[in-house]
Design a binder for these strands. Structure first.
Lengths: 102, 102
DNA sequence: ATAAGATATGTCATTATTGATATATAGTCA
DNA sequence: TGACTATATATCAATAATGACATATCTTAT
């Protein structure tokens, strides 16, 4: 958005910065969630491709079956960190991770 | 590695599983660290491209200058999560993230 | 139907990550 | 030089993520 337009909007009382911040936050949040779901899905696919149960994968990751289930469900309690480390543990290459992101 | 070869090695007393686990862990660890450094570098580039100081970026992220410095340094106390969320906050698209990963 | 195995969900103590703060170390300009 | 701004590093209390556990629900074979 051009600054001239912005000044006009602000002159009319729009809390421009705040609205933009809100929109940016939403977009960012949406992208974050999408990313997480894409990683979750890929993790489940990778596990199934290797014919591992959640319990078996958990053992490899030194984690627990319940956490693997949460990872695959994209639970809010799971970080991108854990998802990415798990995919790496299943042998995913950086190229494969890259494809998940795109 | 083919299972026939594996069986021969095991017959000679190699603790195959353990060694493989060790190697995999190393590879995984290496990939994780590389990824983190790639994200760190991209974050710094993105910040500089926008002519923001670490302090200004920190304010956007509701974080602190010291943490931004640690992010850009790839400090062990920084998660992939925070790096990725920061890049998203700077407006990186999924495609751009994907390129960082590849 | 039910037993067995796999997956999902809820809770919680432990551990890791975080923002804040203080302070140190550049780099720059007058 | 010294004031100023940016960045780096150390520490720590608050918060978030984690593994473990219990238990529930779903699948599948008999």
């Amino acid at each position: 958005m051009k600054s001239a337009k912005r000044r006009r909007l602000e002159a009319k009382g729009w809390k421009f910065g705040t609205v933009q911040e809100f929109l940016n936050l939403s977009e960012e949040e949406a992208a974050y969630i999408e990313l997480k779901l894409a990683l979750s899905k890929s993790l489940q696919e990778a596990r199934r491709k290797k014919n591992l149960t959640q319990h078996e994968l958990a053992r490899r990751l030194k984690s627990s079956q319940s956490r693997v289930a949460k990872m695959e469900a994209g639970d809010t309690s799971v970080s991108l960190d854990l998802l990415i480390r798990s995919l790496l543990a299943l042998g995913a290459s950086r190229k494969e991770l890259s494809q998940i992101f795109s």
